[in-house]
Structures are given as structure tokens and as C-alpha cells.
């Protein structure tokens, strides 16, 4: 937002207004973009600029927050992710082999259609994808009360048989919105799983992002991120699914423990570096007896040595 500085005193161009509006929208905490949008609209007071900003920011926000939308006709949920994007308004749900059409700004799925053959992976890849999805289902169901996950093939989806590399991405998204309790939060993890045929290994890279916002008479936010790596041997689809799920479970459990440790370190170590609970003297400050502190000043003044 470098342009702000140059514009002091002069009118902002529509482009600058749009960029500012987008900045606010993209910095909305999990589950709060609709509220932010309402305020941005009224601050902008220019519906043309507002509509452009919204149409540009919502797709980015929805994809980065891995939001989950209900598909019509009760066929389940679809995750909005960069990995399932067919075009800006269409997202693949590999589990049901459907493509969901979404309205980004309303954050709803308007219709679904069956995915075409070109949009789906080969049977060989689908085998790996599908059993991993099923194995993860048990884990995500146990670990995340409101968790949704999906597995996508992002590279090599047309590989027909062993002998070539391919890459899957596991997305786990859990969000909780309780504005009545002034609290929203989200857990997002993205696991890149690279099957390397020549080395017969599978490399795993995870990115986890956890956010929480508590806003009753204040504004306090948690923003936590973590990246990790692991690997396992290239096995059959069934065995891979089990070991990959174990890897993901292990790292996510460890990360949760690390988060809790960060919280328990707050009172006695981390927060103390900002402000102590009690003074170094361990007693309340002696406001009744502050003469001792200004004494030096009085003496220097009386002796005429201050300045």
C-alpha cells in the first residue's frame, strides 16, 4: 500500500481506493469477511469501486481460507482451494467427482455438474487418491469436530501405471464461527505429497496455519504458522494411505502440543518480557512514598547543579 503516502491531501484514484478496500477484505479474520465487506462498503461510499474490490478479493480470500461450502442436493461439502480450482468459479470435489459452481461473494455453491473425464485423474492415480481420502476420513473425523478434508492430484494425474512421478495435495480445513460468543477461528493444513517413482520415496511437506479472533470489548488475535517435512517409502496405494495418514496425524498432534506449550509459556516467560505481573520488588509500587525517587532532583536543584 505504498501509494497511500503520496496521496495525502489529494483525492484518491479509484484504483487506490480499490486496493485499500481489497487490503481490508483480505486481512479479514476467519469467517468475518462479510462483516468487513459491509463496513468497507460504507467507508468507501462508492458502489462501483466496492463491487470491483469485492469481486477481486473474495475469490482470493475464499481460496486462501480454504472455505467449505455446501453443495446443493445434499451431496456433501466442497472445499474452495487453489488445488481444486478449474476456473475462478468452478471447483472440483474429487470425492463425488463433481464440479461445484460457486458465487464467491455470497460464499455459496449454486450448482453442481459431474466432472468430465479430463478433469479427473487416471484410475491408477485415483486409486492412491481415493484410499488416502478414505484413510484420512477416519483421522479427520476423530481429530477435528468440524473438520473437512479433501485430496487432490496436482501433478501427473494422467499417469496410467507405475514408472512416473505424481503429486497429491491433502487439505484439511476446520473453522468455527461463533459471533454470539465474539470468537472465530480456523485451522488450515495443506500437505504436499510427492510420489517419486525413481527414488521409490514419498516426500511430504506440510503447512499449518491456525488463527483465532476474540473480540468482546477488544480485539485479540492469534496467528500461528508452522511448516514441516517428512518422507516415507513408495508403497501400494493402501499401505501409502496408512503411512501418510500416520505422518500427518503425528505432525499435527505434535504441532497442537507445541501451540499449547506456547500458550503455557506466556505467563511466566514470554509475556513477562513485555510487562511483569508484579514489579521487580514483588510488591506494589510505593506511590505513598515517591519522595525517595524525586529526592535526587530536589538536592540537585537546591545545590544549583541541575542544568
Amino acid at each position: 500500500m505504498a501509494e497511500e503516502d503520496e496521496t495525502q491531501g489529494s483525492e484518491l484514484s479509484d484504483k487506490q481506493k480499490r486496493e485499500i478496500a481489497k487490503w481490508f477484505l483480505l486481512n479479514s479474520p476467519a469467517g468475518e469477511i462479510q462483516y468487513v465487506a459491509r463496513d468497507v462498503r460504507s467507508v468507501l461510499n462508492d458502489d462501483n469501486v466496492y463491487n470491483t474490490a469485492v469481486s477481486e478479493a473474495f475469490p482470493l480470500y475464499n481460496k486462501s481460507h480454504l472455505i467449505c461450502l455446501k453443495m446443493p442436493d445434499r451431496s456433501g461439502d466442497v472445499l474452495i482451494t487453489p488445488f481444486s480450482e478449474i476456473n475462478e468459479n468452478e471447483y472440483l470435489d474429487p470425492r463425488t467427482a463433481q464440479v461445484a459452481r460457486v458465487d464467491h461473494v455470497e460464499q455459496v455453491c449454486t450448482e453442481v455438474r459431474p466432472a468430465s473425464d479430463e478433469e479427473l485423474p487416471s484410475p491408477y492415480i485415483e486409486d492412491y487418491r481415493c484410499v488416502l481420502d478414505a484413510e484420512l476420513m477416519k483421522y479427520v473425523g476423530e481429530a477435528y469436530p468440524k473438520g473437512v478434508h479433501s485430496v487432490y492430484c496436482v501433478r501427473g494425474k494422467d499417469v496410467e501405471e507405475p514408472g512416473s512421478d505424481f503429486e497429491l495435495v491433502v487439505v484439511i480445513s476446520a473453522a468455527r464461527h461463533s459471533p454470539q460468543n465474539f470468537c472465530n477461528g480456523s485451522w488450515r493444513s495443506i500437505w504436499n505429497v510427492e510420489f517419486k517413482d525413481d527414488l521409490q520415496i514419498v516426500d511430504v511437506r506440510g503447512r499449518i496455519q491456525v488463527g483465532a479472533h476474540y473480540f468482546e470489548e477488544g480485539n485479540v488475535q492469534l496467528d500461528a504458522k508452522h511448516e514441516c517435512k517428512d518422507s516415507t517409502i513408495f508403497q501400494s496405494a493402501d499401505d501409502s494411505a496408512i503411512s501418510l495418514t500416520n505422518i500427518i496425524r503425528h505432525h499435527e498432534t505434535e504441532y497442537l502440543a507445541a501451540l499449547q506449550a506456547s500458550y503455557s509459556n506466556l505467563p511466566d516467560s514470554t509475556f513477562k518480557d513485555l510487562r511483569r505481573k508484579l514489579p521487580v520488588t514483588r510488591t506494589l509500587f510505593p506511590w505513598h512514598n515517591t519522595m525517595q525517587f524525586s529526592l535526587t532532583r530536589d538536592i540537585t536543584k537546591e545545590l544549583g547543579i541541575g542544568k
Binding site: 476446520a174 472465530n184 491456525v210 483465532a212 476474540y214 485479540v220 502440543a257 500458550y263 505481573k277
Partner: peptide, 23 residues
Amino acid sequence: RNSLDQVYFGKTKEMVCTLRPPA
């Protein structure tokens, strides 16, 4: 300081544990 420590940070921690209950 106390309400930040106990209440506000505590609420964000609670939210994390709601998203993914402890191990």
C-alpha cells in the same frame, strides 16, 4: 494485563482446542 493474559489469550486458546481438541 491480566485480562489479556487470562481472558483474551485464554479465549483464543479455547478456540484452538475447539477446532482440534487436545491429543
